[in-house]
Amino acid sequence: MDITIRQATPEDVADITTLFRDTIINVNALDYNEKQIAAWASVANDTDIWIERISDFYFIVAERDTEIVGFAYLKKGYYLDGLFVHKDHQRQGIASALLRTIESQVMIEDYPEIRTDVSITALPFFEDRYFDIVKKQKKTFKGMAFQNYIMKKTL
């Protein structure tokens, strides 16, 4: 696996939002219904939010050759707010590499744990990486209820 992890730039926003939308539509659709997927995927349409995330948070991308194949970002120094891997590059170690980089950043910033909200789809990935479920919850977004999990890992 030849991937490079680097800081995201505003120039990456089109690739990031396309990857986000395509992953939700093709991967998360296994665990959520059509209306939930449409609501969730619509977040990709607001490029201003993504540019703000890239500017304000620790936001990294994974590249293979020159293609962005995944991304992850931290909010508040310890909260993993997003981790997505391209639909055609699942189960190739990309999410693990992104998570290791994120966890290293959390430790550099001297936080004792990392927290995240995890979709049903991503739950097995995080459980396999020693995250514990804090709480199962229902969140409402754009009028749709989503089941997900608050998880944490002591570093």
Results as ranks from 00 to 15, higher is better:
113 E>S: 09
94 I>S: 06
27 V>S: 08
118 V>H: 07
35 K>R: 10
124 P>L: 03
121 T>E: 08
48 D>K: 13
50 W>K: 00
83 L>G: 12
97 A>K: 09
15 D>M: 11
57 F>H: 12
11 E>Q: 14
59 F>M: 08
130 Y>A: 14
59 F>G: 01
85 V>Q: 04
55 S>P: 07
40 W>G: 06
21 R>Y: 03
110 D>R: 09
39 A>L: 03
80 L>S: 15
66 T>V: 14
129 R>P: 07
141 F>A: 01
67 E>D: 13
23 T>Q: 01
14 A>L: 12
16 I>S: 01
13 V>R: 01
110 D>K: 14
100 R>H: 12
126 F>E: 06
153 K>Y: 04
88 D>Y: 08
81 D>E: 14
155 L>V: 07
119 S>G: 00
152 K>V: 00
85 V>E: 01
140 T>R: 04
104 S>C: 15
91 R>F: 13
97 A>M: 12
60 I>E: 08
21 R>T: 00
79 Y>D: 12
10 P>K: 09
96 S>D: 12
119 S>K: 03
68 I>Y: 06
75 K>Y: 12
116 T>M: 11
113 E>I: 13
51 I>W: 02
104 S>A: 15
2 D>E: 12
59 F>K: 07
88 D>C: 08
144 M>V: 04
79 Y>A: 08
51 I>K: 11
26 N>T: 14
36 Q>R: 07
67 E>F: 00
17 T>P: 01
138 K>W: 07
94 I>K: 04
129 R>L: 11
131 F>Y: 13
140 T>P: 01
133 I>V: 14
12 D>G: 01
114 I>A: 15
78 Y>I: 10
42 S>M: 05
33 N>T: 06
2 D>R: 04
120 I>W: 04
112 P>C: 05
113 E>P: 00
69 V>D: 02
6 R>K: 12
103 E>Q: 09
84 F>M: 06
60 I>K: 14
132 D>K: 15
124 P>Q: 09
79 Y>H: 11
134 V>G: 04
115 R>F: 07
31 D>Q: 06
155 L>P: 06
6 R>A: 10
17 T>C: 05
121 T>N: 10
94 I>D: 02
45 N>F: 02
17 T>I: 03
60 I>W: 11
78 Y>Q: 13
40 W>V: 03
151 M>D: 05
67 E>H: 07
36 Q>M: 03
30 L>P: 10
60 I>G: 07
20 F>D: 03
56 D>N: 15
101 T>S: 14
121 T>C: 02
106 V>I: 11
10 P>R: 01
30 L>N: 15
29 A>L: 11
85 V>C: 05
91 R>Y: 15
116 T>Y: 02
106 V>D: 12
113 E>K: 15
67 E>G: 02
40 W>S: 09
39 A>E: 04
102 I>H: 07
45 N>R: 06
92 Q>D: 12
112 P>E: 04
133 I>G: 08
63 E>Y: 00
110 D>A: 14
141 F>L: 06
34 E>R: 13
